[in-house]
Nucleic acid binder design. Sequence first.
DNA 1: CACAAAATGATATACGTCAATCATTTTGAT
DNA 2: ATCAAAATGATTGACGTATATCATTTTGTG
Lengths: 345, 345
Amino acid sequence: MRNPTLHDVAHLAGVSYATADRVVNRRGNVAEKSVLKVKGAVEQLGYVRNVSAAKLSKNSPHRLAFVLPHRSHTFFGRMHAQLDRSQPHLKIARISCDIIEFEAFEAGALEKALSGLLGQKYDCIAFVGQGADGASGVLGALRAEGVHIVSLVSDGPEGSRDHYIGIDNVKAGRTAARLVGMAHRGAAGCVVVTVGAMDVRDHFDRVTGFRQVLESDFPNIQISDVIKTKDQSAVMRSKLRSQLDQNADITAIYNTGAGNEGVVDLVRILDLSASIFCIVHDLSSVVRTALEEGVIDIVIDQRPEIEMNRALALLQAVVDELPPPPTPELIPAIYVRGHLPNERS
Amino acid sequence: MRNPTLHDVAHLAGVSYATADRVVNRRGNVAEKSVLKVKGAVEQLGYVRNVSAAKLSKNSPHRLAFVLPHRSHTFFGRMHAQLDRSQPHLKIARISCDIIEFEAFEAGALEKALSGLLGQKYDCIAFVGQGADGASGVLGALRAEGVHIVSLVSDGPEGSRDHYIGIDNVKAGRTAARLVGMAHRGAAGCVVVTVGAMDVRDHFDRVTGFRQVLESDFPNIQISDVIKTKDQSAVMRSKLRSQLDQNADITAIYNTGAGNEGVVDLVRILDLSASIFCIVHDLSSVVRTALEEGVIDIVIDQRPEIEMNRALALLQAVVDELPPPPTPELIPAIYVRGHLPNERS
DNA sequence: CACAAAATGATATACGTCAATCATTTTGAT
DNA sequence: ATCAAAATGATTGACGTATATCATTTTGTG
């Protein structure tokens, strides 16, 4: 009835505890036949290491680091907030968690922040990259030190990290396109698409998906040139304005990046909320209000709080040397007027 | 640097380890002033019990039970599957998890299943209720035994359980209404709404939310009588058919419950996919196909896999006597054609 | 067979908490 | 002051693993 211990395993395998230990903890210097005997016994008894005992025995503090854009960015502010809320739990789990902030869209800022973590003996590092940030060298060096690397929100190349936690941004773009198409209800139209920059991987992916669906399923909806905003509302405001001025046929706006405040201001000022279908990413108080007013029609929210939770769960599994928990795909939430989540979701 | 232990606390408080232990584990027979001294020391040192050591020392097996409708129901099948996937993790966490299946829509079946758990020394029980199932007596008895009770998917009265894990179904109904409205793009219409039964709480809530938004924001979209299907495709097929035959003005169908197969069959047979906007709940292979075909336009999926994960996380926290983890609100996913999640999400 | 190298056994301590025992001291009521 | 009750102190073993040490046995090579 009682769970088998390593002593039980050793006994069944007909070896000493020391040898069983050498096998399960891969210490080497064990004859092949002993390995087999021990593994057989493990199998037969269904032995699983008692994690509590192991942690108690090791008693080594675990260290995580999150490298995130500054919390003044509304989106990342939500990740920070969730991390704050998780601190008591991390304390209970005996995990220390450092947060390093960097300035997004500042060349080399991420790379520099990551470099500072070299040789610091972190167990895991999670970071928000943006694709073309030249960080792959540092990431490689960190991984060479045995640090687990997790990329958040925007994925980098497959080999640069151990895990990616974030939504599928191509799918998000496809969803946006279909909703735009649905809202046109067969009518022709023209969409302005905006991004922070085209080399930000998540924005690029969204545009890609958006294009795919419009081209294949809604051929009479055109896409104007893609506007690059550096995720700044001021840039958004001016560039989007000139686009709207030039082109009176615009029926929809899809902002794949930040800078929603610019969009909202403009639609309000030009009084376009009735005539333009507006779909943006990620909830903030500005977006909330705009959605309730009808200025924005749909918000696709990737729920950074949940991404943060996933990251924490994954990192905890990693430090305990457990397999990652079975986690369903991350799907962004779609908000329309009248059913927003509670303020502190 | 090292985390403070209870010995440290006792020392700082100027009492023996035994007394400190009496305080933190509420064993009683401690003078008030000693309690204060110990609590002060705990506070001062930021002492938190080492969960690993506690678990190791207690070494008591934890027992959970899930009381779910039979896995042949596609929706609950997904919950079962997620539970299956979690078994290795539960084993590692030294938690045993029994699954009790019952026949939904069979009067008294849930109550009977729950009764069987009385006196079985479960730590926590999670169950899927349906509102009017007369189970409140048993639930009270179980809670009186000290069993933690969690309701899933469909909430019961506030006092009948310790936690509810599921989406806000009123909001889901509101969302459905807004999407239906959006798809009408100002045109008038008439929606058929279908439920399993009106006393199933989640279905009822959805209808309520749906009504709210249509009445307030889309007054020229009518709602036909609500069709009750007992969540059976056959019933759906016949009742919905007669409704469609009677009323040629129907522009949309909103199914709040199960029985989607009936909806899909009918729309296909009557060739209504172009003329009727169809929105349903919860993904299944039938719904997947129908969505890709254009027979169904939108699926609101409450992601039972995630609900199951949440339940497991919560129950684990409960058995370890930890505060529940900080969890963002559950928001259902909204699927349209072309961006479905991976098959085994 | 001799000898070194490799493998194994035996054993001990530490990790922090829980739970129990028993002796001793303090407290409060008379 | 006396006595019982209440509170406290001191101490111990158990939980299962990690990790280390040292002695002993087995293996392989010439």
